[in-house]
Design a protein around this nucleic acid. Sequence first.
RNA 1: GGACGCUUAGCUCAGUUGGUUUAGAGCGAUGCCCUUACAAGGCAUAGGUCGUAGGUUCGAGCCCUACAGCGUCCACCA
Length: 896
Amino acid sequence: MQELPKSYAPQEVEDKWYQVWESNGLFHADSGSPKKPYTVVIPPPNITGILTMGHVLNNTLQDVFVRWRRMQGYEACWVPGTDHAGIATQHVVEKSLQKEGIARRELGREKFVERVWQWRELYGGTIIKQLRKLGTSCDWKRERFTMDEGLSNAVQEVFVRLHEKGLIYRGKYIVNWCPKDHTALSDDEVNYSDSNGHLWYIRYPVEGSAQELVVATTRPETMLGDTAVAVNPGDERYKELVGRRVRLPLANRSIPIIADDFVDAEFGTGAVKVTPAHDPNDFQIGERHKLEKPIIMDTSGKMNEQVPNKYRGLDRYECRKEVLRDLEREQLLVKTVDHVHSVGHCYRCDTVIEPYLSDQWFVKMKPLSEKALAVVQSGEVKFYPERWTKVYEHWMTNIRDWCISRQLWWGHRVPAWYCDSSEHPAPPCREPVVSRTRPVRCAHCGGTKFRQDEDVLDTWFSSWLWPFSVFDWPKESKDLEYFYPTDTLVTAPDIIFFWVARMIMAGLEFRGKVPFHDVYFTSIIRDMQGRKMSKSLGNSPDPLDVIATYGADALRFTVLYLAPIGQDVLYSNEKCEMGRNFANKIWNAGRFLLLNRDALEAESPSAFPVVGSAPSNDLSDKWIVSRFNATVKATTESLEHLQVNEAAKLLYEFMWHDFCDWYVEFAKNRIAETPDPNMKKAIVQRAIRIYEETLKLLHPFMPFVTEEIWQHLAERRPGESIMKAPWPECEAGQLNPVAEKEMELVQEIVSGVRTIRSEMNLPPAKEVDAIVNCHEEGKKSILENNRNLIVRLARVANLTIGTGLAKPGYSASSVIQGQELFVPLKGLIDIDVERTRLEKEISRIEGQLRGVEAKLSNPSFADKAPAEIVEKERDKKQNFEQTILKLRASLSQVQG
RNA sequence: GGACGCUUAGCUCAGUUGGUUUAGAGCGAUGCCCUUACAAGGCAUAGGUCGUAGGUUCGAGCCCUACAGCGUCCACCA
């Protein structure tokens, strides 16, 4: 066998294995399988997206779950795909067209949408390609896109069904309007931020008197759309004005003074101008008081024909200036004060949103939300971490109707048609006809000309169907039956309302079953200063660079190790050194074992023995088998509780510190000590067995390096992969607390000698003698049985183990588990150093002794604490006392 | 204004239902080693009154209360 390189080179193996996996169909799941399914649907990334650290964490977690379950024997299916991302994509394509000097509106709808599809062909798969670099084991044959024919059918079907049930309606509502993107935004798509504005106090003269009413506003231009002034009904100042009218300045209209509870008498002047078409609260007031709702701006935020001539065509901010100038001229502006208030911005383009009255499509949410709330409260759908359930509950109980129409061109077009027969402009024909297909004949007028609704649907209106639409719903397919409901959803907590809640509602409404059982909310990855990663800050590392530098496994392992459920993670590329070093450690352990096996193979012709899962009689074997089984148990349990970082830590600890630091070192010694080549082979073979099993445990975390070495460990059939190796199971019978305890003593003695050597400044190569004076027969025989291990690992020339042994002169000493360790160092010992060392040790243990004594002398401790605990404390006390005695004795005869 | 979270070693963080003597890890620091798997490594050492103040308990990093600092989400802002 050819020798492995000295260090692991991920670049040379990653692409190779990914291709093998994919071309052998190892990612593919089949609904005809007799196995139990395990299903995950990817949160579909936007086609405009590129891979970020957030995706890395999210998708690596999914891959861990999927690879683990696959190894456990499930028919594991991970459905990948992308989201058409309405506004985001339209923006990107619009921008690229701008570079060619083409405007979207000039191009026209049909041509533009064509161009978007072309763009998607070229660039829409970027993030999918990048995901492969990470090693994700997605079932690529099932890749879906939210605008695929099948998924579009699902969207249309859902729209029609909800409309038939009366859950979709068309209404005039105040929506968040982006004057730049020309679209309505859902409440969640608006970002509010504080901004420094002003509060302007404006005089409104009361009709038929010299009185005036002063109102305060942050948006004076909207006064042109005022249809009332409102005061609090309990406000004494204005009591007799209610019911009278004011003259609206500039517009020169007469509007009423009304009383409404919404008004806060404390704020401003206690009198509010009411602009029902341009403020959500004013809209509510307008509804209550049956006010006119004149719209005074066009869709670009420019003043329209509803305002006096001189303002028409002005942008809302230019108009504000004009209005203020005019008010000032007419001496109607009382004062201007600075005022900080929060202003909504478009989440795409950051333009200040305009509350705008318009015709939109809505989904009634209340009927859908009740069941969806119940399944989370009952635990049928579990959130990790659990605290998000509260956030969910709050939102679901205060849910508002969902505005689903968007004034875009890229997306699923609303399946509603309007009769467009010009000869029959009768009112009933204005009502939209919602239908799966274009209507043929108008039921009212018999006309045959129809015009489809111009709007498209919110992107989330396709995403909320994702867990079943990817399995061809509304067709009742075998796949749908087998793979739905899915099992684990891994997503970010900031889309809990956008997506998670709505998927639960859709799953229950259209499938009668929850869409998934566990929801894992990922951490947010931040930079080392705790800032969110963003393009504008330039603090988001490119995962592909990281993979090129450190390797995909290193990146995966590091991110998993750093991210407990639901905590933010401060990340920098350098942290990947940890993962890289670990991959290299795994690599080199394998390299060592293979070098030894090859050497033994060359040395003697006999075959290697077959070893089972049981250990030999050797303590180190019993110990590592016990530790291995404990690790299998703990790792599996951690994964079952979705504690991936805990699992990663357990494996890191076992592989590095138990297996490499101790077991391999023991094995070296045992190989050297054993003359019989067959025994040597058995030792190596046992080590390889444990190593191979550990590789399986590591595979979901670090798929590439584990596959590469696994392939070297034995002759594999073509297409055979560690991916399909069975997940190790804990053999409870191999857990061996006695062996672990015994090994602990051996390890502590070895460390004891090393500590003395180090503190006495002796180079590791310098051999020393050691004497262990035992006070317990059991411990003596353990040490006797393992003297070779101690001799080798502690680099001891002559090891004496016995009872009643005297401390030689000029020796360093320590007490380990009640046994005395002496290291004679005549001519090498620094008496002062040794004395200080012992004194320090004594005072440390004296401190502990005092703690235990304080506990025991407390009468209520003995009374109330369980007997078992009290007994433990007594033992501790005794051990401390004896250790101190022994150390004192050593101290008094440092020089002999 | 409402809800939730965080505060543990120089840095980044574990610590899963309160009870092993000494509160752990990684990075960093210090000392000795290129000991034929790995210097991306080995061995050892130093470093913490667990945010502050109370309380519950025989016993608190963990439970309760208040406070401080940081952060997230929601609502409102004429």
